[in-house]
Amino acid sequence: PLPPALTPEHLISRIMEAEPPEIYLMKDMNRPLTEANVMMSLTNLADKELVHMISWAKKIPGFVEFGLLEQVHLLECCWLEVLMMGLMWRSVDHPGKLIFSPDLSLSREEGNCVQGFSEIFDMLIAATSRVRELKLQREEYVCLKAMILLNSNMCLISSEGSEEPQSRSKLLRLLDAVTDALVWAIAKSGLPYRQQYTRLAHLLMLLSHVRHVSNKGMDHLHCMKMKNIVPLYDLLLEMLDAHIMHSS
């Protein structure tokens, strides 16, 4: 689906341009920090971010060339991973804290007020520490996020008997192009060749942690919804329901 002339450098610059703006909660964080208040703020923010995420995905070169059904599936599968990757990126310079938005950050202790959140919080802080340790660069970060989107349902769609046989090969070609872009970004650092491919492996291994925390987070959000601790509206509810539907 990519124009043949799109070099790794051009592809990265297009993906960088697709980056969503900073999203503000735009209201005072409700104090005291109760379970309901924190969850309300986080889901409110997630709902706003999701709207921008759709716009981001549409700007990833090649994405809108997929059928609508494919676009829906990809976003449904990866939305929480993409949100979490953004959260980790924003939090990288703030050890021990998670920067949900410029006007909403929580320490581990503050996150503890939500039942079952401390485990997820710790996993996110640990993954963010790893990002800090790796000194992830912005160009690498945007490539990883695009890879999360394109790889999200790779193991859910069959290579045989697909409704759209071209779809899978298009997806693989696009994923290869983003991989080339990531390799190009790593090479730009001037690291010795051996360290370049070990860095590539380390960066890709981050993604398995992100998938793991996302699955935990999805279960937690579902649980919060079932217990009526937080009312979910609009796009967030739609995306959560789609995920639960796929899992079952």
């Binding site: 709207v51 759709i54 716009s55 829906v72 789609a242």
Partner: peptide, 24 residues
């Protein structure tokens, strides 16, 4: 059509060109 019903907002956002700023 049931799929479209279940993903009403997602479909709408994917298909239209409305700025997310207007929708957020």
């Amino acid at each position: 059509s049931s799929l479209k019903e279940k993903h009403k907002i997602l479909h709408q956002l994917l298909q239209n060109s409305t700025s997310p700023v207007d929708l957020a």
